[in-house]
Simulated assay, not measured.
Amino acid sequence: MINRNPLICLALLSLFAVTGGCVTGGREDLIRSGHADLSTGNYQLADKKGRKILRNWENNHQAMLLRAKSAYGQGDISKAVKILTQMDHLCRKDLCQNETAHIKAMILLANLTNDENLIKESQDNIDELKRNLSLQQYSTLIDYYIEQGRPNDAAATFDNLMTSCDGEMTNEQKMKGFVLYYSVFELEKAKGLYSELTPKQKVRLRKQFGEISF
């Protein structure tokens, strides 16, 4: 039998912690002041700030959107459409750097081109973004409960995560869910996830806890 000491289980969960990157303050300041320029009609200065960001970060979505809004504000719709189309074309959709900015850009592009299909696609993207944000929030809350030594709350939140993603979880999420459920003696749920783990993951668990049985 595995040792279901919550402290040991929580130590294992620390292996799955994920950290995210952040935007530098200088870039944020340029984006913020650029939008202030748009609100006061200083479109050329806003465009200049967008181009400055793009010199160091190609296809930065916020900067591209800033430039597109600047062009639109100056009445150059074709330029705005070109910028937004280029942004969408260059973006790696599976690793989008800023989904929120991308969706805003596509909504603007749809409005500028009166493209019904693009409008519908934008709505689908908004729905997907909401789903992704919910999953991120649940993951953050789970990690918080783990750090606080509250495995029962973490396991309950994992229930919500499973519901939100309709069971389509990554292998690491399944691993985390298994350890959580097993640590709080929810064995039926743990058993279901254990059956979906990869052979390598099961080996990792056995090395950490010994033989696992239900």
Rank of each mutant, 00 (worst) to 15 (best):
K104Y: 07
C91D: 13
L84S: 05
L118D: 12
K104E: 11
D94K: 06
G75C: 06
A71C: 10
R67A: 05
K69A: 06
S78L: 05
D94S: 05
M87V: 04
D76G: 02
A105N: 13
I107S: 13
I83C: 08
T85D: 07
D76P: 02
D88H: 11
G73C: 07
L118P: 11
I77N: 08
K69I: 03
I119N: 15
E99Q: 15
K82W: 06
T100D: 01
S78P: 00
A71N: 08
L108I: 07
I83M: 02
I77P: 02
G75R: 10
K120N: 13
L112R: 03
N114H: 13
Q97M: 11
D88M: 12
K82A: 14
L84M: 05
K79D: 02
I83F: 02
I103L: 12
S78D: 10
R67Q: 04
I77A: 09
T113C: 11
A110G: 14
D94N: 08
D76S: 08
A71I: 01
K93E: 12
Q97V: 11
I119D: 15
D76V: 07
M106G: 10
L90S: 14
I77K: 10
Q97D: 12
A101M: 03
L95T: 09
N117E: 13
N117M: 03
I103P: 10
H102S: 06
D88F: 10
R67G: 03
C91P: 00
L84Y: 00
H102K: 09
E116R: 14
K82E: 13
I103T: 13
Y72S: 14
I119R: 15
L109S: 01
D115V: 05
I77H: 03
K79H: 02
I107C: 12
I83L: 13
E121A: 04
A101Y: 00
R67S: 01
K104C: 09
G75E: 04
Q74F: 06
A105T: 13
L84C: 03
E116G: 05
C96H: 12
C96W: 09
L84T: 02
K82Y: 06
G73R: 00
D94M: 04
H89Q: 15
Q74I: 04
M87I: 07
I119W: 09
C91V: 06
M87H: 04
L90T: 12
M87G: 13
I83T: 13
K120T: 12
A110D: 13
A71M: 07
K104W: 03
N111E: 15
